[in-house]
Simulated assay, not measured.
Amino acid sequence: MKSAEYKPPNNSNSTAATSSKTSNKRVTNYAEILAQWIVDIIALPVTFITHIFAQFVTPGSSGTKILGAMGFFLGTLLSSDGIWQTLFQGIPMFSWFETTWIGWFGWLTLPFNLFFWLSLGISALVQVMEARSLRGKRPDQAKAEFEESKQYTLSSKPTANIDLTTALWRDYKVAGMKERHAGGAIALFFWIFDLTTTFFGRNPFAYTDPGQILGCLAYNFTTMMAGEIGYTIWRLTK
């Protein structure tokens, strides 16, 4: 009787199966990588545009600074039209709510006109002063000035002294108030100046159609506020 011979296990089938699985896994990985590359390439323009828009909405970024500067310049340019017409008797620079305007050829000659640059400079000054009056002081600045002012105490009004002492006591009592009142008066002057030049250049009540009257009013107030809005945005991005 023959004894049973020991036969080693045949690993050829298992090795082939393992090799096949490994190859399939590699193919799957390559396919996933290739698909990811294709999606990334397709999404590249969208991602690029998204990053561009993010630059214009992120505080302190270059995009917001560009928007603020453009808003301030365009607002100043719109506001300068009223100054250009009122102070220097120039032809309207824009055609909106005007019977005539300087035209495209006239725009080519404006940079060579000194009065245009004067109008633009005056308009920029008006926009800055109006924006400052609207913005007011920052809380930290107001707090610092308040804390500093508390150190100055005032005694009762002297009665048994010469007139010079009484006058100096009064000066000490109202110290700083003249500058405060003068600042308010200057701000009021610039607002009245802007309002006068804007409505003198484009009188909305010269129209009879209510729609044109409302449209001209809205346009006038927009030209007055555009520079302030742009300047405020520009200041917030610094």
Rank of each mutant, 00 (worst) to 15 (best):
L236Y: 12
R135F: 08
N113R: 15
L44T: 14
T28M: 05
L67C: 05
A160Y: 11
S61R: 14
A142K: 00
L120N: 05
C216G: 03
E179A: 11
T76E: 12
V57A: 01
A187F: 01
Q55H: 08
R132W: 04
I41F: 13
V46K: 01
D194P: 08
A167H: 07
K178H: 03
T47F: 06
T196N: 11
G90Y: 11
Y172T: 02
F205G: 06
A187G: 11
L74K: 14
F72S: 12
M129C: 06
G103S: 11
I52E: 05
D194Y: 03
F88R: 00
N10E: 14
R26L: 00
A187T: 05
N113F: 08
L154A: 00
P59N: 03
W37I: 14
G215A: 05
S80D: 10
S149E: 12
T208K: 08
S23D: 10
P204E: 00
R135E: 09
W169Y: 13
E148V: 10
P9K: 10
S149A: 15
F112W: 11
G201A: 12
E179K: 05
R170Q: 13
P92I: 06
D194S: 15
A206P: 12
Q212L: 15
G82H: 05
F189E: 08
P8T: 01
T76L: 06
W234V: 07
I233F: 01
T159E: 14
K2L: 05
R135K: 09
L44S: 06
N13K: 14
R138H: 11
I66V: 10
D194L: 04
F97Q: 00
E228G: 10
M224H: 02
L78R: 02
I162M: 07
I186M: 14
D163Q: 14
L44D: 07
F53K: 14
S149H: 04
D194W: 03
A35V: 03
A69G: 13
T100G: 09
I102P: 08
F115G: 02
L168T: 14
D140F: 05
D40E: 10
S149M: 05
F73S: 13
K143A: 07
A16M: 15
T28W: 14
T18I: 03
F88D: 03
V27I: 15
W96M: 01
G75D: 07
K137L: 00
D40G: 08
F94N: 08
T198G: 09
Q212G: 05
G201W: 01
S156R: 04
F115I: 00
F97Y: 05
L168Y: 07
Q36D: 13
Y219T: 09
P210S: 01
L77Q: 14
I186G: 09
G230P: 12
G82N: 12
A218W: 01
L214K: 09
P9L: 06
P204L: 00
Y152S: 00
I42H: 07
S80H: 02
K7L: 09
A182M: 06
F112E: 03
S149T: 08
R235T: 09
A160N: 06
G230W: 01
I38R: 15
T64K: 02
G103V: 04
A4T: 04
V126C: 12
T208Y: 06
F205H: 13
K143P: 08
F56G: 12
Q85W: 02
T64P: 12
A17I: 10
T99H: 10
Q36K: 06
G63V: 11
N29T: 15
A124Y: 05
T223M: 13
E148S: 03
E145N: 12
K21G: 03
V57H: 08
F190T: 11
F221I: 15
P8Y: 06
